[in-house]
Nucleic acid binder design. Structure first.
Length: 497
RNA sequence: GAGGCUGUAGCUCAGUCGGUAGAGCAUCGGACUUUUAAUCCGUUGGUCCUGGGUUCGAGUCCCAGCAGCCUCACCA
């Protein structure tokens, strides 16, 4: 209970008290001539390496190899004039022992100023404690950085999901498997680039600020350029500029970057997310299926993902080749309707609760597919050959103008990749841009007029295959994460009240 | 956008029937030269998410709002 007679007690919350204790120690360090914010510390070995050396040190040896390490103090156990420290670096954790007699009075005064979360560098000999724990017996200590904040509960860590995301730095330190997952994300992204580079693709960077948000069906973020005094939007896809590069003779290009969609937030959606799009001249959607498999398999390898596992409670088997199934066939199997007969599709749609009134038959079909078939796809499965009218950027199948050469890759009911044989007929492209599908709001359509893009196509874009992969979702799959927030370091949040 | 759940100390959580706030960790003080979430004794620390309402009295009941999580819808 705060003492009302004590004027200081009003401002003395726990947090204030905890910080004061740390600042007192900081002042003591300064008073004894120790810089609490440290300097360059050369020659520290990764703790993981030290540990493998330690395995070869005899248990009773008191002349183990000299080692030098640096890291953060995760646990402190004081037994009088003997202090045990669990030190963390990016590679692992190891125990230190600091003895009053062993380190001498100068260093011991520094030891008395250590708190959980402080960063130190030490020299010592590697060996084993009496209770059989691999230990660095410290002889020298260099104070590197003071922590002024109390770390989370040393046993439970940071549990509150909101705090974990807002204070990701703490989550990375204390969260079980959190750092491993983000390391996996780095490895996966590296693998994606490696697979594409090996096939002769060039990585490029298109504009993120655009006049027209094209290449996908989504609401863009809007902004304004002051000097030019023009409205701009943030890109929602990479497609149209990469295709311009195909026209420009960069026959194999990809971009791996951020796109922005001004839409809902959920466990599968963040307003900014990372997309891969790759385009290969003289290929088609079949080429892209092979590429997709190659990328996913290599990514799974570097992430250490098993071939068979469960994700979102559903079985996934990454054994190649992935299953391929026609859109219409799946629709027929699941709903029993005749996909070629709009009346039959409409009846099935009505039965599934899909709105049909005043809507284009292919939109109804697409909604029916999403409402019934998608959920059933454990995958991975390439769904191929989509209704042409919902694919305004896709080449039609030879002799079958109602079918588009497009595939989407589904895993556990979630769309992971989307690819087509690219439409390169400028006249047809312009017509598709002009034709707004009945029952579709402008923002729901991919068919946004981009006259500059049409102009590029008129100069001749080679026949090509194009592929898009949602990298965040790929990472979710391969690290078995159930929320996109677990694979994005800093997901969006409402400002704190 | 709809529904459900949650919000109490720096962190993790209790809080019974409505009677003025509890634990563990952390902090501070003490004991300890072999600890492992060290242990033991003592200590400090509260805008009970915010604002209303009911009541003699609200962490608790009611209403509204804010934030988070989950499910669904849309999308990738």
């Amino acid at each position: 209970m705060a003492n009302p007679n004590d004027p200081e007690s009003v401002t003395r919350g726990t947090a204030v008290q905890l910080e004061k204790a740390r600042r007192d120690k900081l002042d003591r360090l300064v008073a004894m001539g120790v810089d609490p914010w440290g300097r360059r510390f050369d020659g520290a070995a990764p703790i993981a390496d030290i540990r493998s050396v330690g395995e070869r040190v005899a248990k009773e040896a008191d002349d183990g190899p000299a080692v030098r390490i640096a890291g953060r103090i995760m646990l402190l156990r004081s037994a009088g004039s003997l202090v045990f420290v669990d030190l963390h670096d990016r590679t692992g954790r190891i125990q230190l022992m600091l003895g009053k007699k062993q380190v001498g009075p100068e260093i011991w005064k520094v030891v008395e100023c250590l708190d959980l979360g402080d960063i130190i560098g030490v020299d010592g000999r590697l060996g084993w404690s009496k209770t059989g724990e691999m230990t660095v017996f410290v002889s020298q200590l260099e104070f590197l950085t003071k922590s002024l904040e109390t770390p989370p509960d040393k046993y439970h860590g940071l549990v509150d999901p909101e705090l974990r995301q807002r204070m990701r730095y703490l989550d990375l330190i204390h969260g079980e498997g959190v750092r491993d997952r983000f390391v996996s994300r780095c490895r996966i992204v590296e693998a994606v680039r490696r697979v594409l580079a090996a096939r002769g693709y060039l990585e490029v960077e298109g504009p993120t600020l655009q006049e027209t948000a094209g290449g996908a069906a989504a609401r863009p973020f809007t902004t304004h350029h002051n000097a030019l005094d023009i409205p701009l939007v943030l890109r929602i896809a990479l497609e149209l500029h990469l295709k311009r590069l195909l026209v420009g003779g960069m026959e194999r290009v990809f971009e791996l970057g951020r796109v922005y969609r001004n839409e809902g937030v959920s466990t599968r959606h963040n307003p900014e997310f990372t997309m891969l799009e790759a385009y290969e001249a003289y290929g088609d959607y079949g080429t892209m299926m092979d590429l997709t498999e190659a990328i996913i398999l290599e990514a799974a390898k570097v992430a250490g993902t098993p071939t068979r596992f469960e994700w979102m409670g559903r079985p996934v088997d990454l054994t190649p080749p992935f299953r391929r199934a026609r859109y219409d066939d799946l629709l027929r199997e699941v709903t029993g309707c005749d996909p070629a007969d709009p009346a039959s599709v409409a009846a099935a749609a009505a039965a599934a609760g899909v709105e049909t009134a005043g809507r284009h038959p292919d939109v109804v079909k697409s909604d029916l597919f999403e409402a019934t078939v998608e959920k059933t796809l454990d995958g991975p499965v390439f769904v191929i050959d989509y209704p042409a009218s919902i694919c305004p950027l896709t080449k039609r199948k030879a002799g079958r103008p109602e079918v588009a050469e497009r595939f989407e890759l589904y895993v556990a009911g979630m769309e992971l990749a989307n690819a087509y044989t690219e439409l390169n007929d400028p006249d047809l492209q312009e017509e598709l841009f002009r034709t707004q599908l009945a029952g579709l709001a402008a923002e729901e359509s991919m068919a946004r007029m981009d006259t500059d893009f049409i102009k590029a196509l008129r100069h001749g874009m080679p026949p090509a295959g194009g592929l898009g992969i949602g990298i965040d979702r790929l990472v979710m799959l391969l690290t078995e994460a159930s929320s996109i927030r677990d694979v994005i370091l800093f997901p969006i949040h409402r400002p704190r009240a």
